[in-house]
Amino acid sequence: MSIDRRNFLKLLGFGTVALGLQPTRAIASIDDSKIKRPDSYGVLCDVTRCVGCRSCEEACNTVNSLPAPEKPFDDYSVFEEKRRPTSKAFTVVNRYETSKGTIFRKVQCNHCLEPACATACLVHAYQKMPEGSVVWDEKVCIGCRYCMHACPFYAPAFEYESPVPRIRKCTLCYNRIHEGKLPGCVEACPMEALIFGKRSDLIKIAHERIRKNPDRYLEHIYGELEAGGTSWLYLSAVPFNEVGLNTTVGTYPMAEYTRGFLSSVPLVLVLWPALLGSFYAFTKRNEEVKKQGNEKHRKEAHSQEKGEN
């Protein structure tokens, strides 16, 4: 597979740290103690098992009491175009034509460990729950949609059609998890392509699968490190960008990109008054000197007059 120059440079720019993801060495699983909340839950999505039945979509619709869709869930003509989650559908399945044939993949919020949406929200409307869900709170949202801009996975959707709009996205079935149930999609999947469990366990399971079936899987768990790690993990037979996952996202949490700027803010708040105050003082002093010079002139002129009289 040839990577064109642009992508190559992108990799350089963001993915140099991705050196750690290269084949040949058996990587020890990333040190989970470094990731906060090692007990948080996640979902392992084995893309090789998905057959595109859309049962997950239907289950999600039911569990969240979403409105009935335009095309019913057994209408597979929807696969003709690539869809994304909307305000009425928290998850969709897309069909991809890849180097190994037709593959289906489920798209939804990945519940990042360091969610960009939460970082971006200026009213703290998002929370990363200990269980792993990234949840949006209606009580304070002002509808600015900056979270939608921040999300590298294009997960949040907005109710543009409403005068009192909400952000809508997958919640990892937060309420169901608390009741000890599985997320709707996980429960519905007939192929067991979705496994729900502790994130740390899922990573171990994923590595096991790769080890046991090296021909079936690409040796990479998407979401283990991407964007600082996500709760939704993927295994795939083909390169992940072929199934619509962004491989240029890098391993920094999105929030990391703003740290530099944010750290300079207090510096400016302290340095600028000193700097600008100095300019002002300097200018004022110049004016004083000039004024004194003028005063002297005037006094001299005046005394000259007096002298002449």
């Binding site: 929200c121 009213v123 409307a125 949609r145 900056y146 709009p165």
Partner: peptide
Amino acid sequence: VDLGRPWRLPYPMIRSFGPASILFLVA
């Protein structure tokens, strides 16, 4: 005109703070 819930414009100032956000700074 653009905000989804414009009556909540003052929220970042008085109701709920998200200081990790650069938009918070802008507001």
